[in-house]
Design a protein around this nucleic acid. Structure first.
Lengths: 238, 238
DNA sequence: CGAACCATTGACCACCTTCAATGCGAGTGG
DNA sequence: CCACTCGCATTGAAGGTGGTCAATGGTTCG
């Protein structure tokens, strides 16, 4: 989610461009502000912000994975998405955060105060456009997820989820056939509108059909991506 | 959806401020551009745009109701939302429309070319912010709907839907206890991730419990809004 | 090494869907 | 004006998908 719209090349890929703290000129772009900001370590399960918190910062994920979710008074939870390195979180127009952001594992973030973002946006009209593009991508992701949770069967949902992970992996130039899932079955279930058990059972069925391999529960090797695509579109019935 | 963020007072409430076509100065604000644009009539079931169309215009609904939806190759449909008078449709960053927009009944729209919007946004930084706010409201609506389709039961979904209609009616200063539904049961079902039959049965149950009255199938009178709120939050089980 | 957390698997059942028939209302033409 | 028709809504019966409850197994971390 939010990938690319505002992210430049992940810093991991630029180990030689070491940050220059002392002699640097005043930061002008949002990217420069992020690069200069200290990284903040977040423990697994720790919250970055929760619903209702004042919106003080714009965050960029550097390492790990952040789960964005909403909760109902009785505890039911809907995961809205996951943010990965390069993604921005904390976008939005109103004064308070509208959802919770929780690390699914040890992570690292950088942040820039919203007041700084707004100042930059006033100087640079292109930044406003970038922010608009970023949030518009988030909207497209939400609409895709709506189609999934509203209309697809359990198998279709899980297949769709795995395919999205594969595509993200591909965009990052990694081996697309092996995916490391940085979240629990509960996170996946609450993302797809399914229970833990249904997610688990569906993974098992995919394994039995030799569509995926599950050496470890958090590591999925995709063996038959076409079958996965067929499942996701409802061409076959599992 | 999108209500308020960019809409000024609905023109219906300003009958005396009649549009001046000939001697008017060059339009400066987006609102002026909209007010000056001719209204376009849309028949029931007619499409304003479809998925994949180039994004030429930003539209404002003047009269009626527009249904925004996505479809899967096999015909399954997810309604993303409904746009009512004052709401903007056609927002988004990429070159093509990502969803379909179809009138649920006879409607009227005005439109402004995106090129004009972009020119105005360059002149007026506040407009960029307004657009950002508008799309961010759409995102919030999508997230709310996700919580509903992903986690709530059929009765909770219908109750949530009716409550949203009541609140919208209240914001417009209308009698909040009587709602005219400008869409079919199929639209509601595809919005909530339910079948027509389930929607209909749920309406019937609400009527039997004297929570609503259904003189006509498109006219709902809310008799017990607290019961509706209880249902929406899952406090009671229908 | 133990304990806590997470994932898997099974049995049962509830809710919603599917399929089918009937009812209702608006619009059209005779 | 009425009959006809079509689209939409309602209602019923049956079945399936996914949820719930419960027990076991595996992994990781202190």
């Amino acid at each position: 989610m939010l990938s690319h719209a505002l992210s430049s090349t992940p810093s991991l890929l630029l180990p030689l461009a070491h940050t220059k703290h002392c002699e640097a000129p005043a930061p002008r772009t949002l990217h420069e502000h992020f690069s200069r900001a200290p990284t903040r370590a977040i423990a697994a399960k720790e919250h970055v912000f929760t619903e209702g918190d004042p919106r003080f910062h714009l965050y960029r994920v550097e390492v790990g994975a952040i789960c964005l979710y909403k909760v109902m008074p009785d505890g039911r939870r809907q995961v809205l998405g996951f943010a990965y390195p390069g993604d921005l979180i904390g976008l939005g127009a109103c004064d308070d955060h509208q959802c919770n952001a929780q690390a699914t594992k040890r992570s690292q973030l950088r942040s820039v105060p919203w007041s700084t973002v707004q100042r930059l946006a006033r100087q640079d009209p292109a930044l406003g456009l970038k922010l608009y593009e970023a949030i518009s991508q988030e909207l497209a992701a939400a609409h895709d997820l709506l189609l999934t949770t509203g209309q697809r069967s359990a198998a279709e949902r899980v297949a769709t989820f795995l395919l999205a992970m594969v595509r993200r992996s591909r965009r990052n130039g990694q081996d697309a056939t092996v995916i490391d899932l940085p979240m629990t079955r509960a996170d996946i279930g609450d993302f797809l509108g399914l229970t833990i058990e249904t997610v688990s059972r569906t993974f098992t069925k995919l394994r039995q059909l030799a569509i995926i391999d599950l050496a470890q529960s958090a590591r999925v090797r995709v063996l038959d991506i076409e079958a996965l695509e067929g499942l996701a579109q409802g061409d076959v019935d599992l």
